[in-house]
Design a protein around this nucleic acid. Structure first.
Lengths: 247, 247
DNA sequence: ACAAAAGTGTTTTTTATACACCCATGC
DNA sequence: GCATGGGTGTATAAAAAACACTTTTGT
C-alpha cells in the first residue's frame, strides 16, 4: 500500500530524517461467558526496559514482514486460536515514548502500531502460561502496564464498545454456538447494565434474521433450558446495510 | 505513548529487524459550497519515484518530530488555513510498497501513516499554487495517483462519510456561517442524494438545538432568502451523547 | 404572475421502551 | 410447588419517512 511524498535533496537531506524501529502491540480481548468477564491478554516483560512489568503482547517488525504479519506472529507465539478477528487500531509514534530512544542509541525512534484482536475464550490456549508470565486479566483488574500500554488498552476498549454497536464482532468472541442470553450478557458486560431490556434486545436481534436456532437446548442450573444459536454470516451480509443493525 | 515488547537478545538479534523511514500522507478534504463539490488536495510530485504524478501531500518524519507534527508541517507547507480538523487515519506498511525499498538501498522500509484533514474552502489559501503543482480535485475527477494513494484517499473518503453521521465534522468544512441548505447539500454530496428529505433533515437538526440562527439573511439568486446559522459547540457538547445525532 | 428556493405542518409508518405474562426446568 | 431463568406478547411513546403546503424573494 502506502508510501510517501518526499522533497528529496531539498530541505530534507537524509541526516534530518528520523530512523525508526517499528513495533506492533496487540490489544487482545476475550470474554469468559461463564463468568461474564471481559478479558485482556497481558504478558510479563522479560527484558529491559520495564523488565518484570505487565504489558501488551508486542514485537518489533522484522525484515520483509508486514505489520499485520507481525501482529499475527506475536499472537501465534502467545496463544493458539482457531478463529481470530484482527484489525489495526492506531499508531503511536511521538519522540521520547520509549526509554530506548536515549541519545546514546544513535537517535533511533520507536514507533508502535497497535492492533485490536478478538478471540474465543474456550478455543484459546495460552502457550506456556504460568512459566512465561502470560495471563488473561479482567479489564477492571488490569495493573499499571509498561510504556503507554494502559492508554492503548483503553483505546482498544473504546473501539470494542463502538464495534459492538454496528458490527457483528460479538460473534468473534462468543463460542460457535451460544444462547441469546450469552449474547445479551456479553453486550451488558461491555456496554453496561442498562443498554437495553433483554426481551427487546432479543426480539430486535431475532427479527434481523441472521441468528439460526440450532434446535439444541442447554440447561444451565435452574430455569428453562435455552436454545443454542449460530451466527449466519451470509444472512448478515444481506441486512448489514440497514440502519442500526445492532443495539 | 507507545512502545513495544521485545525479546531482545533472544530470537531477535537486531539484524533481523527492519529499519524504517516513516512518512506521513494527508488526505485533505474541503467542500466548495457554491458548487457543491467535495474536493481533495493533491500535489504534483517533484522527485522520483513517480516524478510528475499527482499524489497526496506527504513528507518524511524528521528527528524529534512527532507524527502529528509532521502532518501539520506538510499541511502548513501547502496551505494556509485558520481552522483545521486533523485525525489519524491508518498506517500502511507492508514491504515492497515503495520503489525506494529496492535491495540496493540497504533494505530500508518505507512506512506511511496517513492523516485525515478537513479545511474550509474559503479560508484555505493554497501556497504557490500554479507554480508548484498543487490543486483541489473534485473527488470524482481524481486521477491515478502515485504509490497507493488512491487507496488511502478512498479510505479517507469512507472515514468522512462515517464521521458525518455521528460527529459534527461538517462544521469544520463549512464556512463559519452557513445556510441550512448548504448543510443539507454537503450531506447530500457526500452521502448521496437520497439520504434524507430536506424538510425532515431540517427539523431534526434544528430540534437538537446546537444551530444558532444569526438573523442574517442571504439571497442567492431567485427564491426566498435563507437564514445564516452558526454551529454552537457548547450546545452540541450537551447533546452529543444522544443516540444518532446526525442523519 | 410565476418560478424558485426557504421554511412549516400534518399524516402515516416504523421503531424503541416498558412491562406483564407464560413456559420449562431443577430442587 | 416454587424459584429461576427462558421466551412471548402487548400497549405506549417516540422517531423516521413521506409529502402537502405556505412564505419570500428574483425576474
Amino acid at each position: 500500500m502506502a508510501a510517501l511524498v518526499e522533497k528529496q535533496g531539498r530541505a530534507q537531506d537524509s541526516s534530518l530524517l528520523a530512523d525508526f524501529k517499528v513495533g506492533v502491540d496487540n490489544v487482545i480481548f476475550s470474554v469468559d461467558t461463564s463468568q461474564n468477564r471481559l478479558l485482556a491478554l497481558l504478558v510479563m516483560r522479560q527484558d529491559e526496559p520495564f523488565l518484570g512489568q505487565w504489558s501488551l503482547p508486542g514485537t518489533l517488525v522484522r525484515r520483509g514482514e508486514s505489520l499485520e504479519d507481525a501482529a499475527y506472529r506475536i499472537l501465534a507465539e502467545k496463544i493458539k486460536v482457531k478463529n481470530l478477528y484482527l484489525e489495526q487500531l492506531y499508531t503511536f509514534g511521538g519522540p521520547g515514548r520509549d526509554p530506548r530512544e536515549s541519545p546514546n542509541s544513535y537517535g533511533v525512534r520507536y514507533l508502535s502500531v497497535s492492533y485490536f484482536a478478538l478471540v474465543r475464550f474456550e478455543e484459546a490456549d495460552l502457550i506456556g502460561s504460568g512459566l512465561r508470565g502470560i495471563a488473561w486479566y479482567p479489564l477492571e483488574k488490569v495493573p499499571q502496564l509498561a510504556f503507554d500500554h494502559n492508554q492503548i488498552l483503553e483505546y482498544g476498549y473504546r473501539r470494542l464498545r463502538n464495534k459492538l454497536e454496528y458490527s457483528p464482532v460479538a460473534f468473534e468472541v462468543l463460542p460457535e454456538v451460544f444462547t441469546l442470553s450469552d449474547l445479551y450478557q456479553l453486550y451488558s458486560t461491555v456496554l453496561g447494565e442498562n443498554f437495553s431490556d433483554y426481551s427487546n434486545f432479543r426480539t430486535r436481534l431475532l427479527k434481523l434474521g441472521f441468528l439460526c436456532d440450532t434446535g439444541v437446548k442447554v440447561s444451565r442450573g435452574a430455569g428453562r433450558p435455552a436454545s443454542l444459536y449460530r451466527f449466519n454470516a451470509e444472512a448478515f451480509a444481506r441486512v448489514k446495510d440497514k440502519p442500526l443493525v445492532f443495539i
